[in-house]
């Protein structure tokens, strides 16, 4: 198990910087996510850790050792590919054993390690099968077992769930979490799916255009997105224009959805700022005496929750999400509603 560090790493393809001067440390044993839209550079960053791509500038360190120029087969990194990349001409056993062939492992130990890897990924009994005889979820687990069998310093996962259907995805997600905890391994996981990242990550980095927009725990990033992009990419949000306006001794911003308190230092004293207001912080109620008013435009029922879109008096749209239990399920399109912003502190964006 090793820590992983990017230090000012840049990779260009032609004139485009796929990865543009990123610096990042993943601690030992962490399950770290690189999250971003397609083309943001997350896969290139991962492939640099694997050794498939060499950085043009900067260094990559495993436990402080510079591995930037080390070819893939000398890195001891396990990788789970998006397409799994299982060797179709080898049985599950041979696939899992493959990496051990190049590690001077004694035959007896090899067999034991293969058996262990299969057992821990719940594949015991499937060893003699060929990959084509397995279901998608099983193939996924073989890919994991194969990567883990070599006892890698770092485990890399490249969109490992993207080829599974929704139900299986949630199942395998939990499996990955369990395996990560059991193996206590440093893992870097690339995805564009925020649910995967929010539910699994110890920490994560949001990438865009080859740069890291923000890094932190899922809770930190969700609660305090630094800018509009992060606020919009991780979870849903309402973006509002705010004007600084102290009220009753407290600092805050006046917005179309009413006045929201804010920390003076977070706002950096700006008179005008963009405010992110999560939908669950928008409560709907009686229009009379409400800080802001609007008309219900759309009601979507999700079982556990209800999402309501409100058109504010200034024409902007605001969404509100509330748990099914404590909401008036009677909101109808065209109803007039009062808007109550219930944030302790507004999120002031850069």
């Amino acid at each position: 198990m090793a820590s992983v560090e990017f230090r000012n790493v840049t990779k260009r393809f032609g004139s485009v910087a796929a990865v543009d001067g990123i610096s990042l440390t993943v601690e030992r044993g962490e399950l770290f996510f690189l999250l971003g839209p397609s083309g943001c550079g997350k896969t290139t960053a991962l492939r640099m850790l694997a050794g498939f791509v060499e950085p043009d500038e900067g260094t990559i360190l495993f436990d402080g050792r510079d591995v930037s120029r080390l070819p893939a087969h000398r890195r001891n990194v396990g990788m789970v590919f998006q397409t799994y990349a299982l060797f179709p001409h080898m049985t599950v056993e041979r696939n899992v054993e493959y990496g051990l062939r190049f590690r001077k492992t004694a035959a007896a130990e090899r067999a034991a390690r293969v058996a262990e890897a299969l057992e821990r990924t719940r594949l015991s009994g499937l060893g003699p099968r060929y990959p084509s005889e397995l279901s998608g979820g099983q193939q996924q687990r073989v890919a994991l077992a194969r990567a883990l069998a070599i006892q890698p310093e770092v485990l890399l996962l490249d969109e490992p769930l993207s080829n599974l259907d929704t139900k299986l995805r949630i199942e395998v997600r939990e499996e990955i979490k369990r395996i990560h905890q059991e193996f206590k391994i440093t893992a870097v996981y690339v995805t564009h799916d925020q649910d995967e990242a929010l539910s699994l990550a110890d920490r994560m980095a949001i990438m865009r255009n080859g740069r890291i927009e923000q890094a932190g725990t899922p809770a930190e990033i969700y609660a305090k997105p630094r800018n509009e992009f992060v606020a919009g990419f991780v979870g849903e949000t309402n973006l509002l224009d705010g004007t600084a306006e102290p009220r009753g001794g407290a600092f805050g911003y006046a917005t179309a959805a009413g006045w929201v308190p804010a920390q003076r230092e977070a706002a950096n004293g700006r008179a005008a700022a963009r405010i992110s207001l999560r939908p669950e912080c928008v409560r709907l109620g009686e229009p009379e005496g409400a800080p802001a008013r609007g008309v219900v435009r759309r009601v979507s029922f999700f079982g556990g929750s209800v999402r309501v879109e409100i058109e504010l008096e200034n024409g902007a749209t605001l969404s509100s999400v509330s748990l099914g239990a404590d909401t008036r399920l009677t909101w109808r399109e065209g109803d007039a509603a009062g808007v109550y912003a219930e944030a302790d502190n507004a999120v002031v964006l850069e």
Partner: peptide, 27 residues
């Protein structure tokens, strides 16, 4: 055959020659 299989082989510790021998040529 796709390049991913060769990359998988490399990430498991196989250099270019074993990758050619065990993965690419058989496929």
């Amino acid at each position: 055959t796709g390049a991913a299989l060769e990359e998988a082989s490399a990430s498991l510790g196989a250099g270019p020659a074993p990758t050619l021998r065990f993965i690419t040529l058989p496929l």
